[in-house]
Design a protein around this nucleic acid. Structure first.
Lengths: 230, 230
DNA sequence: TCGAATTTTAACAATTCGTTAACATGCGTA
DNA sequence: TACGCATGTTAACGAATTGTTAAAATTCGA
């Protein structure tokens, strides 16, 4: 569930302040003090946002941003620049290289967080709002409501996301790990067994006979499948 | 539906910066580098706002604004001037010719967006006066009046906007961030927790039993929802 | 039919999330 | 200037959710 933010900042004090603020706001922070190797290090696990100092020893933030935009894995990730300069030419250069916002020092932690939230929000893709139906189950993704055989049932947030995922992919078998990736927002520390538990909880809510599941089937040695095989 | 902004600016860097910022803020941008043919090109599809550089080769921004005001199709569309000059006489000249605001270079993307929003808000056609009803709640958007179960209640401005938003989107779940975006005018520095507080205040005014809300429901792990879907 | 592998299940612990009251700050107006 | 109302923040508290564990049950191949 937690989003990761990569900071590249050579000034230790500022880096400290920033990473502290971000951690406080619930973000996971990865710190770099130079632009060296940032792109390579991030390509495997892309962060949600880059926070780049414009003035960096060696490779400037602007050039780093350029590199990020060249990387297939990272090109769509938002970038915010941090800078002490306020001259117009810098602003222009920053945004032209693909920055999405610009924060000038000194800034307050509060402002920093607000700007980051605003940018992240802009980039977040809302799931389409629709009514999904499959057999006995009907899901309203906008209202977060589920009905089974015409009767409204209540689900927790995670149960809902899992069920929605299944209903959006009827007939496909998913391994526990795939489900963790898709449904759990930060799957880093969650055991695959937890999926079993959630499957069980869902069955109790949607199956006629939870002991003999009809819709949410076990595929032994592989994982789970919702609905008929494709 | 996105609003269109027409920019007329000869400096390529600035035009680039501006159009990037506007696009980021969700506006559609049409760029012109001179005043030639702007009016003609816009009459078929009037934009929501003009952003004019005062100093333009050939036809000055002031003259262009004048033309805009002569055009029946465009006369009521707001105009913001962009200029490097800061002298008072220019300001006066710009506003006298029908400009609605004035931004001096250098400016930050943020400031630009904020000013544009402010002007658009001022020009926004007054919302149609209507009576919205949902269950026990009746809202008169023209008079900013709310009745619950036939009884008039008083709300503060923010409470009203929040309630109106909920009533206009019955049955939808909104996250705190979405509500901040939609209801708080300048959400830059407001904590998502504030939404909780306003929800609580609204509940005290509209629910029979504020401790067991019936209309304005919590959706744990997601946000809030007003009313039930059909 | 035995046994290993896998899944199910219930109980438990940890953590997150929402509520709420009290407080701080701002803003307009008397 | 002082007052009152509107707005926003904070922190503690309790409750619901989430994830783990281990034992029991099931499945399937040999």
């Amino acid at each position: 569930m937690k989003q990761t933010i990569v900071t590249v900042e050579d000034d230790v004090d500022i880096a400290q302040l920033v990473s502290h603020s971000l951690a406080n706001a619930g973000y996971v922070v990865r710190r770099f003090s130079t632009g060296q190797g940032v792109v390579e290090a991030c390509e495997k696990e892309p962060p949600s946002l880059f926070l780049l100092d414009v003035m960096l020893p060696g490779k400037s933030g602007l050039r780093l941003c350029d590199e990020i935009r060249q990387s297939v894995a990272l090109a769509t990730i938002p970038v915010i620049f941090l800078t002490a300069k306020t001259s117009e030419s810098d602003r222009v250069a920053g945004l032209e290289l693909g920055g999405d916002d610009y924060i000038t020092k000194p800034f307050s932690p509060r402002e920093l967080i607000a700007r980051i939230r605003a940018v992240l929000r802009r980039f977040e893709r809302p799931l389409p709002i629709e009514t999904l139906r499959s057999g006995d189950v009907e899901i309203d993704t906008g209202a977060m409501l589920v009905s089974v055989r015409g009767k409204r049932i209540t689900t927790t947030a995670t149960e809902f996301r899992l069920l929605e995922y299944f209903v959006r992919h009827i007939g496909r078998v998913f391994t526990r790990d795939q489900l963790l990736d898709a449904v759990w927002r930060d799957n880093a520390f969650v055991t695959p067994r937890s999926v079993d538990v959630y499957v069980r909880r869902l069955r109790e809510k949607i199956e006629r006979d939870p002991e003999n599941p009809d819709m949410l089937r076990t595929v032994r040695g592989a994982g789970y499948r919702f609905g008929e095989p494709a």
